[in-house]
């Protein structure tokens, strides 16, 4: 294990000291020295995630596809762009730079008031005795927050305007998870970072939770005909469970997408009455021509179009003007 850690941190230190540190030093950005080192690890983890998706998960998609190859295959390409931009840290970096001052301000204000984030290990010392258990507890807490944020994305019109981009994909694959508007990503990141700080998730734990969680979410979007079994489907979100959340609504199932919100642990849907388990295979997408038009567009056009949709949902006056022919 230690050899693996040495290999990992050795590569991280080499990349940082060769590529990043000289740039930060040259431009007098030493205040970003430690965050810069963390960013290198984020990119390295992103490369691994892309490899796991492109090699591991894609194998299952090719071997046991749910939807056969067809004329909509070209729609997948833009999702690959989203995945690369996200996993290699380009969008997260932009979000980090944008949100850092706000997160800092909130954190420092709270700290200067004397608030100290709790650590579960202090309440339940036996948790601290087991690193895996400790990680799992924080992972569950994190996922609980993510579940309610996901419900918010569907409950508020302005937020749905952003999130609908994610749902507009008719050819759902392992690449679809990262297909989000940058403002949507920004809001979710901000909320989850603040929540994590509030409950005392360590920075190191946060990175691992993020990586494991996002990999599971990538898998849950996979175009595969596989099940974890009765029990497994209730312990971990899989493709069958999550595909229902992306199902195209019909007159008979008008609110089908208001189910199976959980990102990783289905327990939240079971507890809050939003879980549906069935074997029926449904097409995915959104029953709204304006949203469905996202398909076939490139990254930049999608971002611009959805931003307009977001503004119209946010400002009724703007919406009326926009609706005039």
């Amino acid at each position: 294990m230690r050899d693996l850690i040495d290999l990992w941190v050795g590569a991280q230190a080499w990349l940082f000291e060769t590529l990043v540190s000289p740039v930060l030093f040259h431009f007098g950005l030493m205040a970003w020295y430690e965050p810069g080192y963390g960013a290198v690890e984020f990119v390295m983890l992103g490369v691994i995630q892309i490899a796991v998706i492109a090699i591991g998960m894609r194998y299952f998609e090719r071997r046991w596809p749910l939807e056969k190859a067809g004329r909509d295959d070209g729609l997948i390409m833009v999702d690959r762009v989203y995945t690369v931009l996200n996993k290699l840290g380009i969008i997260p970096l932009a979000i980090f730079i944008l949100t850092y001052p706000l997160v800092q301000e909130i954190e420092l204000s709270v700290r200067s008031w004397g608030y100290v984030p709790p650590r579960l290990e202090r309440l339940l010392p036996w948790i601290g005795d087991n690193a895996l258990l400790s990680f799992l507890v924080y992972f569950v807490l994190y996922d609980f927050a993510a579940y309610w944020l996901h419900r918010g994305q569907h409950a508020f019109g302005w937020w749905w305007a952003l999130h609908s981009l994610h749902h507009s994909q008719r050819r759902m694959t392992v690449w679809t998870d990262d297909r989000n508007h940058v403002i949507d990503d920004l809001l979710i990141t901000l909320a989850l970072v603040l929540f994590s700080q509030f409950v005392g998730v360590q920075p190191g734990e946060y990175v691992v939770i993020l990586m494991v969680g996002r990999l599971i979410e990538s898998w849950s979007h996979a175009n595969v005909d596989m099940s974890f079994g009765w029990l497994g489907e209730r312990l971990l979100v899989g493709p069958r469970f999550h595909r229902l959340h992306h199902a195209l609504s019909t007159p008979a199932e008008r609110h089908i997408q208001d189910h199976n919100f959980a990102p990783v642990f289905p327990i939240w849907d079971i507890l809050f009455g939003t879980a549906i388990y069935d074997e029926k295979i449904r097409p995915t997408g959104v029953d709204d021509a304006a949203v469905d038009a996202d398909n076939g567009r490139g990254w930049i056009v999608q971002q611009a179009t959805v931003f307009g949709r977001f503004l119209r949902a946010l400002m009724p006056r703007f919406r009326r003007r926009a609706s005039v022919p």
Partner: peptide, 13 residues
């Protein structure tokens, strides 16, 4: 004092 011990060392260390 009830402090949990988190052993971290390994033989390979």
């Amino acid at each position: 004092a009830g402090i949990p011990v988190r052993a971290a060392s390994t033989a390979g260390d």
